Simulated assay, not measured.
Amino acid sequence: MFKRQQPLTRNFPSAKESAEVQAHVVPEPRYDGPESAYKLAFTDNDFLLREELRPVRMQLELLKPELVQQELDIKATVVIFGSARILSEHAAKAAVAQAKAAGDPHALKRAEVALSMSRYYEEARRFARLVTEASTRRAEPLYVVTGGGPGIMEAGNRGAYEAGGKSIGLNIVLPHEQHPNPYITPELCFQFHYFGLRKMHFLMRSVALVCFPGGFGTLDELFETMTLIQTGKCRHRPILLFGREFWTRLINFELLIETGMISPGDEKLFHFVESAEEAWALLEREYEQTLALDPAETPQGKKQR
């Protein structure tokens, strides 16, 4: 006699169940060598890493962060970009002291420049804290997203962590391994192989891009976003550039207009800001309705409770 089961009992074992069974079965010696094909396809790393499986790996890299964020009900993000090399004020001051003690004028000059740039770390940290603190009182929470590494990325995750909120880190495998900073929410700490898919995830839920001084990687991410907005491939969203002096020395936007390389008005795709408070105030103006307080937190809502 068959044991009576519920009508909706699964007809077939799950892939997880099959993988667990396989893990506890010792195959015949003949089929246990490296040349054997006796493995489930989805547990066979050698198979999954074949050149021909690149499209499948790209799908997986798109799908994994998407499913996790859907499950955690993450719908809106603020992306913080910037250099991995910018130090916190504390670390930069320590480097200056060390260079002075060593009597190395070249090291001292580099350390002093790093100290002057450390203000951006502190602004990114404070901005992320402002976003996260405000989000706890809003109808649709905003989550800080960074590239998951050190420098400005660390500052963004750190600010959210200090505010008691969750934040996302989209790390990528580099020749010199990039370790995730210690402030990312563990269940939202992802790792990518493909730069393109990582950049896609930066933008899929973003309501704003906040860009601090940085190098090639930062410029790549900034210009890709501006290109997508300029060409209408994605909706408009605020792009905030921290530090007018840095960005106008780095990029001659006026020359691009004068030579017809961009159209007049394209320079309005972004705004310069100097402080965390100024950046957050601009976002609030841009999204006056979307970033509105939760109805229960408004004066009218409090009266009704």
Rank of each mutant, 00 (worst) to 15 (best):
6 Q>S: 11
8 L>D: 15
9 T>Y: 01
12 F>W: 08
13 P>K: 07
19 A>P: 00
23 A>N: 04
29 P>Y: 05
30 R>D: 11
30 R>A: 15
32 D>Y: 00
38 Y>G: 02
48 L>K: 13
56 V>S: 02
60 L>H: 05
69 Q>D: 03
71 E>M: 11
72 L>K: 14
73 D>T: 00
90 H>F: 10
91 A>K: 10
92 A>L: 02
93 K>D: 04
97 A>M: 07
101 A>D: 13
105 P>Y: 08
105 P>G: 08
106 H>M: 14
111 A>F: 01
112 E>M: 06
113 V>Y: 09
114 A>N: 14
115 L>I: 09
118 S>V: 11
120 Y>K: 02
144 V>N: 02
146 T>K: 13
149 G>Q: 05
154 E>T: 07
159 G>N: 13
162 E>K: 08
164 G>W: 10
172 I>Q: 06
178 Q>A: 06
179 H>A: 09
193 H>L: 09
194 Y>R: 01
201 H>T: 08
201 H>A: 12
212 F>S: 01
222 L>Q: 01
223 F>Q: 03
224 E>L: 02
229 I>T: 04
231 T>I: 05
236 H>C: 10
240 L>F: 08
240 L>D: 04
240 L>W: 09
241 L>V: 09
247 W>S: 06
248 T>F: 01
258 E>V: 07
263 S>A: 15
265 G>P: 06
267 E>P: 04
269 L>A: 13
279 A>S: 11
286 E>F: 02
289 Q>P: 08
291 L>S: 12
293 L>T: 10
298 T>R: 02
302 K>N: 00
